[in-house]
Simulated assay, not measured.
Amino acid sequence: MLGFRGHFSTKSRSYSTTLGMLHDARRAWRTEQARAHAGLPEPDPTTTLLVGHWDYLGSGYSPGAAFLAAAVWHRQELERQFTAKGGY
């Protein structure tokens, strides 16, 4: 593009900053902003954070998914009956 090979947004590592470095800097800044907004303490590099809290949210279908599953089952049942009676 424009006499140069490659995508227009790629940058030379020897000439300018790379897009990966920009992404890393943006990620670090957003992480720091989120930590400060949540009021969390500064992370300690010698500590490993483990999050192991589980909550039971229920089992089975949601009402919408139950309706959809029943509709699919009903459709399959009608097709089975149709083919059992000699339908194509």
Rank of each mutant, 00 (worst) to 15 (best):
A38I: 15
F67L: 11
Q81D: 06
S16C: 11
W54S: 09
T18A: 11
L50V: 06
E42G: 01
E32P: 03
G87N: 04
P45K: 01
R35G: 01
A71L: 08
D44C: 06
G6H: 01
D24V: 05
G86I: 00
D55A: 12
R13F: 08
G52P: 01
G20C: 04
Y61S: 14
A71I: 07
G58Q: 10
Y15T: 15
G3F: 00
K11H: 09
A66I: 01
Y88E: 10
R13W: 09
A38F: 13
Q81L: 07
A38S: 09
L2W: 03
V72G: 08
S12N: 12
H74V: 00
P43R: 03
P45F: 00
E79A: 07
A25T: 09
F82Q: 10
S59A: 11
G87R: 03
R75V: 01
R80F: 01
G86T: 00
L68S: 14
G6C: 04
L22N: 14
G52L: 11
A70Q: 10
T18K: 11
A38P: 04
Y56H: 13
L40M: 13
Y15K: 15
R75D: 02
G60P: 03
M1A: 15
A28V: 12
D55Y: 09
L40G: 04
S59G: 15
A36M: 15
G3L: 00
F8P: 06
F4P: 01
A34Q: 15
G6M: 02
R27Q: 08
R80L: 05
R75W: 00
G60A: 10
G60F: 09
G39I: 01
T46N: 03
G64R: 09
T47I: 13
S59Y: 11
R26N: 04
L68P: 04
Y88W: 15
Q81P: 01
T48R: 08
T48F: 00
W54G: 02
L19N: 15
T48H: 02
P63E: 04
W54Y: 15
W29Q: 14
A66N: 04
S12C: 14
G87L: 00
M21L: 15
R80C: 03
L57G: 15
A25M: 13
E77N: 15
T46W: 06
Y15W: 14
T10C: 08
P45R: 05
L40P: 00
T46F: 08
Y88R: 11
K11D: 00
D44V: 05
D24Y: 12
R5A: 06
Y56P: 02
D44W: 07
S59R: 11
K11L: 06
S62R: 12
S12T: 13
G87K: 01
P41F: 12
